[in-house]
Amino acid sequence: MTSRKKIEELFFKCLMVLSLLAVMGSLVLIIGTVIYKGAGSMSLDMITSTPEGGYYLGKKGGILNAIAGSLILTGIATVAAIALALPLALYINLYRARRSRFAEMVRLSMDFLWGIPSIVYGAFGFSVMIFLGIRASLLGGIIAVTLLIIPIMARAIDEAVSLVPRELLDSSYSLGATRFEAAFKIVVRQCLPGIVSAVLIAFGRGIGDAASVLFTAGFSDRIPLSLSEPAATLPLAIFFQLGTPFPEVRDRAYASALILTVIILALSITARVLASRFNRHIIK
């Protein structure tokens, strides 16, 4: 009986270790594949020039169009999302009771938005653009990505703000601060690490998402110079250029995948380092 119990435990323990190895192994395999394929096609030319003779057919040039397009598009979208998500989180935590019905409704709505697939944002954004008469452009992409990352940012900032100790708010109010002053002078400072990591997470999600920009931002060989021009993005550079019969063009896709992955990894590491560094200045 005892030995059967032991064998059973050992059996399941083996299954667990194998499962965990499969999970970790697939991550290593993904990163390894991307680095192996990407490093082979990486060169200075690749990241400093735009594709020549069309991104799908031309065999020369690099992916500067997609790097610049992605950074510009996601950068502006992130700023727009901060402008909406930060007031949202501060409002439902400071102007309203944290657990008030209004605050809970807003949270529920953000949870819904968070779960909606990005292709639905793309499709919705596209029909809004047709309605407004905007063509596939940097502006269209910015609208779609902003909508996509608002819930991510709002939820993360809300979580950070809701951890602010009640006493801190009470003492700022008792010193005569208005809610507005408490929000932007005390709470924002106290939550800075949380806000920064929320922004980085949202930026990472925005820059990696292809389905939302597929309809809305279009694609182009050039770096976008105005909001009405179509913009290339890294995820779509991977998607489109991987589908061609030319190895030279596929190399551009692998290089884009490597750069995108490096950006995502860098964001995740930065978020961690910043969070631990800022933590020292927080009133606990």
């Binding site: 965990l20 970790m24 993904i30 991307v34 389905a211 995820p235 991977i238 991987l242 995948a257 992955t261």
Partner: peptide, 24 residues
Amino acid sequence: ISRPFMDVLAGIPSVVFGVWGILI
């Protein structure tokens, strides 16, 4: 170490998963 591992895995863009899918 598993926590950052999972975070990174969760953060990888879906196109990169697609590239991995096609290649492996």
